[in-house]
C-alpha cells in the first residue's frame, strides 16, 4: 500500500463529523520524509481538527491515515505505539503541570520507551539544551513564560525521537516577544531535516520554511502547492482572497516575524 520509499504519511479521503456538522470533508494529503508542510486557512476551516486526527487524538468517520507502512486507522492499530512515533505540539503547550521540566521530558522515555533513568536523562538533557533551556531542568511549568513552556513542549515531543512532528498553531497563545524564540527553534528543526506539518497563522514563517502549503476552508483543501504558488500565484479565488486579506491586515507592520531563510 505504500508509495515511494520516501513517503512517510499518507492521508486519503479523510472525513470527520461533529454530529451533523462535517468538519473535514474528503481531505487527502501526502507527506514525504524531510518535507515541511504548512496548513493555513481561516478560523473554523478544520486545520486543528485535521492535525489532531493525524495522530489519532480525534477519531475519524471515514478515510485512511498511513504512517510509513502502518495504518493508523486500522481497527487493530496500536495507537499508543504509533503516537509515540509522532510528535505533537499543542497551541496551549499542555506541559504536565505537576512535573518538573525534567520529568516532563522523561515521562514518555521511561514509561513508553522503558528506558532507565540515566538513559532517559541523557536524552532529555540533550533535547532541553537544543531548545536553549538547559538551565530550566528543575523548574516547574508555572515558573516559565509561555514561550519557554512551548519550547519545553517541543523538547518533550523531540525526546521521543519522532519520525514526524505536528504543530497545532504553536505560537497562537504566545505574546509577541515569545513568538520569535519558538519560531527560531522550529527553524532549526527545519534545517536539520525534520518532517513537519505546521498549522499556523504566521504566514511569513510558513512562506519561508514550507516546501508545500495547503490552503483549507470549510473543511476542504481548497488548494495545495508550493509556498510560492499559494502566497503569490494562487489559482483559486478563495486562496487569493485569504492571502490578500492577511496582507492588507499586515500593512504597517514593518518587521517580518518569520525572517527570510
Amino acid at each position: 500500500m505504500t508509495g515511494s520509499a520516501t513517503q512517510l504519511m499518507r492521508v486519503s479521503h479523510l472525513t470527520k463529523r461533529f454530529g451533523e456538522h462535517t468538519v473535514l470533508d474528503d481531505v487527502s494529503l501526502d507527506v514525504t520524509a524531510g518535507e515541511v508542510k504548512g496548513i493555513i486557512g481561516p478560523s473554523g476551516a478544520g486545520k486543528s481538527t485535521l492535525i489532531r486526527c493525524l495522530n489519532g487524538l480525534e477519531p475519524i468517520d471515514a478515510g485512511e491515515i498511513w504512517l510509513d507502512d502502518t495504518e493508523l486507522t486500522a481497527r487493530k492499530a496500536d495507537m499508543d505505539a504509533l503516537r509515540s512515533r509522532i510528535g505533537f505540539v499543542f497551541q496551549d503547550f499542555n506541559l504536565f503541570t505537576h512535573l518538573t521540566v525534567a520529568d516532563n521530558l522523561m515521562l514518555g522515555l521511561r514509561r513508553v520507551r522503558g528506558l532507565k533513568r540515566a538513559e532517559a536523562e541523557t536524552i532529555a538533557r540533550r533535547e532541553l539544551d537544543r531548545v536553549g533551556l538547559a538551565e530550566k531542568w528543575r523548574a516547574y511549568p508555572a515558573e516559565l513564560s509561555g514561550g519557554q513552556q512551548q519550547r519545553v513542549s517541543i523538547a518533550r515531543a523531540l525526546a521521543m525521537q519522532p519520525e514526524l512532528m505536528l504543530f497545532d498553531e504553536p505560537t497562537s497563545a504566545l505574546d509577541p516577544e515569545s513568538v520569535g524564540s519558538v519560531l527560531r527553534v522550529m527553524r532549526e528543526l527545519v534545517a536539520e531535516g525534520m518532517t513537519m506539518i505546521i498549522v499556523s497563522h504566521e504566514m511569513a514563517f510558513i512562506e519561508a520554511v514550507a516546501d508545500d502549503v495547503l490552503f483549507m476552508a470549510e473543511g476542504r483543501v481548497v488548494e495545495e502547492g508550493s509556498a510560492r504558488q499559494i502566497f503569490h500565484e494562487a489559482r483559486e479565488q478563495r486562496t487569493r482572497g485569504f492571502i490578500d486579506g492577511i496582507a492588507a491586515a499586515l500593512v504597517g507592520e514593518a518587521d517580518d516575524p518569520g525572517q527570510a531563510r
Partner: peptide
C-alpha cells in the same frame, strides 16, 4: 482535558495517562 491529550500524544496508554498525569493533578 489538554493534560490527557498531551499524555496520549507522547504515547502513554489511557491507563498510564490516568495514573501518571490525571490522578496526581
Amino acid at each position: 482535558p489538554g493534560q490527557l491529550a498531551a499524555g496520549r500524544a507522547i504515547g502513554l496508554t489511557y491507563i498510564q495517562t490516568i495514573g501518571h498525569i490525571v490522578l496526581p493533578q
